[in-house]
Structures are given as C-alpha cells and as structure tokens.
Design a protein around this nucleic acid. Structure first.
Lengths: 242, 242
DNA sequence: ACAGTAGCAATTGAATTCATAATTACTTTT
DNA sequence: AAAAGTAATTATGAATTCAATTGCTACTGT
C-alpha cells in the first residue's frame, strides 16, 4: 500500500536534526558541530555526516567546504520564493485532483470543511489550521502525482519553522474561509481550471508572506542579516518596507 | 556572483554517477555495488556512500536497506508526473519572468529566438534543441526565483536520460515554433498571464510525453516492467512486435 | 523428490583511525 | 603597543576496520 519506510540510521538522524531546526533548537546561521551532534544522538560521525549531506540537498542546511555545516538563514526573499512555488504546486494539485478524485474523497473533504467551519465559528485558530492543513493534504493526495507530493512536502519542510501565523486578522480569516467555500464548490463540480486558480490565489500563502515580512523584519529569523562576507547589505530588507 | 561551487568529493562522485545513469551505463533497475564503483572512481566507500544518499534524495536512485542501491526505473507514469510538474514550473517561471526581466535580457532571448528560427529553416534538429534549451533557461533565470530554478533543475535531471526526442514530426515542430513566436510576443509585452499559459501548454512537454509513451512501451526504459518481484515476465517482449 | 533449516560467503551499515585544512593564540618585530 | 606571521590545536574530509544482515547453497529429514 503505502511506501515501506526504511529505517536507516542516517534517515533517523536527518529527521531528528530537521526537528531541531524546526523548533529553533538549532538557530538559523548557527554552525553545526559534528562531534556535538554525535554526542547528542549517540551515533558515530559516519551516519551523521550522511544525514548532513542529505539535509543539505533538501535545502535545510548548507555545507561550507572544510568548515562544516550550518542552518540556512531564511531571508524574506527565500521564503517568498518558496511560497510562490508552493502556490503554483497547489494550483497544479487542484487541477489534477479534479481529474482523479473519487466521490468518496470529495465527501471526506466536505466533512473536513464542515468541521473547519465549526472551528471558525468558535474562533479556534489552532483547530482551524489543523483541519485546513488536512484539506490541502487531501487535495494533494488526490492529484495522484507522487513527484508533486514529494516536492511540496520538501518545500513545506523548508519553511516549516516560520509557519506559525499567530496573528490572523478577521478580514483575512473571513476571506480564507470564503476561498475554501469556493474550493469545495469547484471540486464538487470538478472544475479543474477554477480550483487551480483558487488554490494559486488562495490567501493563506499571501497572508503568511505578509505577516512574515513583519516577523523577519523583527530580526527573529535573521539575527545578523543575510550577508555573510559581503559588507554591503542588499535591498532585501529595505524591500520589506515598500 | 553565482554560487560558490563546492568541490567536495562526494559531490563529484554524485555527479559522475549521475552521468553514468544519464548515459545508460548504469541500467535502470540495476543494482549498484559499492565496491565496484569505489574501484571505478578510485575513492573510498565513505564519500561514495554519501553520494548515494544524496542521489537517493534527488530521486535518481533508491536505497534498499542492507541490500544496496539501484537505479530508479522510469515508469511512464513517473515521467508523465514529472513533466506535468515541470510544465507548471515553466508556467510560473514565465509569469515571474515578465515581472522581473530586463530589456537587455529580452533582447538576448529575441536574438536566440532568431537563431533558432534559422536552425528550424535549415531543419537542424540538434542545433534547434540546443537553442530551445537556452531560451527556456533564460526565462527561468529571469524569474529571479532561486528555489524554482533549483527544483526545475532537479526534475530535469531525473528525466534527462529519456530526453532525446529523436523523432519530431513536421506538424509538431511547426507548432512548437509557433508557440515560441507567441512566447516572445508575450514576453515583450510583459504579459505574464499569457506567457505563463503558453509555457504551461507548450507543446514540448506534451510532445515528449507522447513520443515517450512509445519509447517506454518498447521496454527500452523498463526492461522488466514496473513489477519488482513478480517472477512472471509480462508482455514486455511481445509488445515490441506489436 | 521436495522442502526446510543451517552454515557460509558477500555486501552493506557503522565506528574508529588517519590526514588535511582552518582557526586561534602566542610570539616576535616594527 | 599593535600587527603580522608562525605554530599548535581543533574540526572536517577520507580511509580502513569491524560487525551485522542478507542471500545463496548444501545437507538432511520427511
């Protein structure tokens, strides 16, 4: 049925490090000491270094030749670029989903949708987000495109640590709910063009980007800015103000 | 300027193995012996295994626990899924390019376009494809989205070994050229919606998928079909005659 | 004769060891 | 006293070694 999950040590270690990054226990830009992590996880350097190589190709850390690894610093531009991509992928997933989704799956999503509305009425943001995630996941699964799902999952991983959207204005929230109403409608009519468009323009992404502009500006994500060796600061931060 | 290319041994090895796969010297489904490759490249097992882990996350090979690695078998569905994704990414790149591209870059693409038309008139397929690739690359670069470029490049790698479209009917070719005419027009008008749409529907992808359907059916890509452990050889040989 | 189990060979997974590169601290010179 | 250069220490890159799992083959029992 689903994929056989291979439990190699390197994969386990990679996941654990990913968690550390997501929860901020490994700060952005922080240098990662191999020995330190070896002791923390109780493994030898070989599987740990394999894990680091993998995490680097997954875009979570970057490797400095002969100088070890460090957590990638999420600049505003990087996050924006990633969200643009994710929006495009969500759009595609919507189009494909309309072509392949079963009636049972639509019914299940409708069910989720109704539950989500309930949470909206109760103003339960956490519960709302959880169901929201499940709905998008269901559509993604209905696309029947494994490569797409893999890519989306990877992109999602990269920006996970900034996905906490604590503040959600009523206007935005209301609009998001409206988007979801339209999504369900398009899905039930199997209007792939429409669903694709809605998902591409779905507020969630734009909203998060908007709020993030503030968050990142605060310096909470990029403590010592993006420039490593160049003394000149580029326009990336000033762009936030425009 | 551009990224500092780190020349780690593992990256070098990974690229070399990638080449072997692309050129078919490592057959699809073939088991990869670590020792064998170590001797071939003259490196120890450590960097080689790091390379294998990376190639696995890049989707070129798959790792069987305690049984080594093997080249992924490109099924028709996998290729189709990948092309669908690439089309979506090209579409996005078009939209973004219209927003960021400079006049100089447009002029350069126009230049490429004219050269390509020349090759079309001379019916020089190889030269045509080369310029065609450069044009799409230029648009991708103009999107100013590094994540997008990285993802596209990865997807492109995965299906590289089947991208040889030797046969190109005149009808298809003519349509492709027409598409490119429209692309340039949209680009010069900076009509992002239009360019996006053209790129998403650009014949190249659909054409390749169509021809590939034949190629893969021939068994040249999946020698023993998609089934892994089934002892029964299905229609693979009889299909060649049909 | 066929099937199941046990033993052996081979290959991968992980750890330890060795080498090389970088960084830091200390000393010397200006 | 400050700066530069050299040496030493630390950390990463690579190789070798060790252990464990797998697959194959042979032998025995039914």
């Amino acid at each position: 049925m689903s994929k056989i999950l291979q439990r190699n040590l390197y994969r386990e270690v990679a996941d654990r490090i990913g968690d550390l990054i997501e929860h901020g226990e490994l700060a952005p830009g922080e240098r990662i000491s191999e020995k330190q992590l070896c002791e923390k996880f109780g493994v030898s350097r070989t599987p740990l270094r394999e894990a680091l190589k993998v995490l680097a190709t997954e875009g979570l850390i970057e490797l400095l030749p002969n100088r070890g690894a460090r957590v990638v610093r999420l600049t505003f531009k990087k996050v924006k670029d990633t969200y643009d991509l994710m929006a495009a992928l969500e759009g595609l997933s919507g189009e494909l989903a309309c072509q392949h989704i079963s009636d049972a799956e639509i019914a299940a999503i409708r069910q989720l949708h109704d539950t989500m509305l309930e949470h909206y009425r109760n103003q339960d943001l956490m519960a709302y987000f959880e169901i929201n995630r499940k709905i998008h996941e269901s559509i993604l699964a209905a696309s029947r495109n494994d490569v797409l799902q893999e890519m989306y999952s990877n992109l999602s991983q990269r920006v996970k640590r900034v996905r906490y959207s604590k503040k959600m204005t009523q206007t935005f929230w209301r609009q998001a709910v409206q988007d979801h109403e339209n999504m369900i409608a398009a899905l039930e009519k199997r209007d792939s063009q429409k669903l694709g468009q809605i998902l591409r323009e779905h507020l969630c992404n734009k909203l998060e980007v908007a709020t993030l502009a503030g968050v990142i500006e605060d310096g909470s994500l990029s403590p010592e800015n993006s420039a490593e060796n160049s003394p000149v600061h580029s326009t990336e931060n000033s762009a936030v103000n425009s």
